[in-house]
Design a protein around this nucleic acid. Structure first.
Lengths: 274, 274
DNA sequence: CGTTAGGTTGACGACGATCAATGACGGTGG
DNA sequence: CCACCGTCATTGATCGTCGTCAACCTAACG
């Protein structure tokens, strides 16, 4: 039950203090977190940056969280580990993700990268200032946080009540939708997906063997094909059906602001005295 | 797999517009959401109230969310239902809980009461005003939202990677801790717990039969006893061990403010011109 | 070529689901 | 007062999905 992982401390912090290269590599609207204009506004407060290689950890379960991180580029995931090594992957983070929002003082999960990553580091003090100066920024963070909870809930439903094949279908479909939303580079219907079997397994409460079997079934049935680091969606309709895809749960465009189009788009205009 | 539930529309809204009886029945610090001082501040913005009987729904999966609700008194839970009726309970809400924070436009879950409940209703516009007037209030909401995500993550880990008995132990322990935190009325080590077996089962991704077997094992082993609507914790140490209770995951006191004791306690003082 | 990391496949077993019957209560009406 | 329900808890028998263990394969790389 669950892969056993060692808690190796291999954090490599390359901390700079400029605001260089703050823009993510998919320059269009980044729907799951802050967009470019917002990141630009944040960068004006001169945050630090951190870069990590693949397979490193930005922070560990049990660390005290004094910072907020914005993921500018790369893939990462958050996970929780039980004493005996059982691991649960909580979510996958992509460009624009806001990590380490202030809950209690101690982080109950760790963050590990899947690819080389770049983060912006904001101290809590900076966040306080930003929210104080720009109330709409606080609302934006609130919106992002609420969306994150929404995603956690869907994930929970998947793990708690769906079968193995449904879980895999649901996860992969969700990842594809998110990639679509952020205009990731797509060749035909093939997407970059830097996950290995244990990642999928630990995200879904399964074993990598089961995930492997499910994937080969999906491949045999010409629904999708996940080989190496690339996911090809062959029959999205059938995939959606397998995922239990009522159109009730069709992806709500994040990036839609707090109220109509009013607050989020004007989020930073309100801050810029013109 | 999972109890089948019908989506019965039995919402009963008794909507008033005074600010009467805004204080929850556990007048001490309410740690999982807003505390009394904060609720008092909110009440100054003259929100409406809603009261529901047990077993009714405040909103349904698929509703558009235009309001934010504060749970003043009672127990409720949020849940998601798949087409074929499989139900996942996402979390249990107690006094002070903040519900319906603005994510996207559509609610992906429903809220149902376990006991008679009273809610304060705030429109999004009111929230906007409050956050604009009192930036610290925005931070407080952010903190609450982040804590909610934290709890969702722990829940996810439970469902994804723990055995049946561990899940039950973990859930009941968590509920007891939350009751302790809010100074619920306790006789000895016996707590009020308005849950039926299907609730526990659907929260944990199990069947009520399995939950029943687990509970009778725990009772036989003199760890705890859950009968009717009362939970007696006989051996908390053993319960904690069963829950996989490393002290890493010891309950972080929510209510601890954003930074040290600065922001949250002064949250509303900043707003009151003196 | 050998080595290693990760993917694939098979055989088997266990944990929890399913199906079914019975029990314990509490409320209601005769 | 007691028979009659309805609701929920409890227990048993059986089944199936998925975990476990183990072997083998494939590709990348030195």
């Amino acid at each position: 039950m669950g892969t056993v992982h060692r808690l190796v401390r291999q954090t490599a912090h390359t901390l700079g203090t400029g605001n260089s290269a703050l823009l993510p590599s998919f320059p269009e609207l980044v729907t799951e977190g802050l967009n470019c204009a917002e990141l630009a506004r944040v960068s004006a407060s001169r945050p630090g940056t951190v870069t990590l290689d693949a397979g490193e950890s930005l922070y560990f379960q049990g660390d005290s969280n004094r910072n907020i991180y914005l993921l500018l580029d790369g893939w990462a995931f958050r996970h929780q580990i039980l004493e005996d090594g059982r691991r649960q992957i909580l979510d996958f983070s992509m460009n624009g993700a806001v990590l380490g929002l202030p809950g209690s003082g101690v982080l109950l999960h760790g963050l590990e990268t899947l690819t080389p990553c770049m983060f912006t580091v904001l101290t809590r003090e900076r966040i306080l200032e930003l929210v104080r100066d720009v109330p709409a920024f606080g609302l934006r963070l609130l919106e992002i946080s609420a969306n994150a909870e929404s995603r956690a809930f869907e994930h929970l439903t998947s793990v708690g009540r769906r079968t193995a094949i449904e879980r895999v279908a649901f996860l992969l479909l969700e990842l594809v939708r998110r990639l679509q939303d952020m205009n990731a580079p797509v060749t035909d219907t093939t997407w970059p997906l830097p996950l290995m079997l244990p990642h999928i397994a630990d995200a879904l409460g399964l074993t990598s063997e089961t995930v492997c079997r499910v994937l080969s079934t999906l491949r045999r049935n010409k629904v999708l094909s996940l080989r190496g680091q690339r996911l090809e969606v062959i029959d999205e309709r059938r995939l959606s059906a397998l995922a239990g895809g009522t159109e009730l749960r069709e992806r709500p465009r994040t990036g839609i602001p707090f109220r109509a189009a009013a607050s989020a788009s004007s989020c930073f205009q309100a801050a810029t005295p013109h």
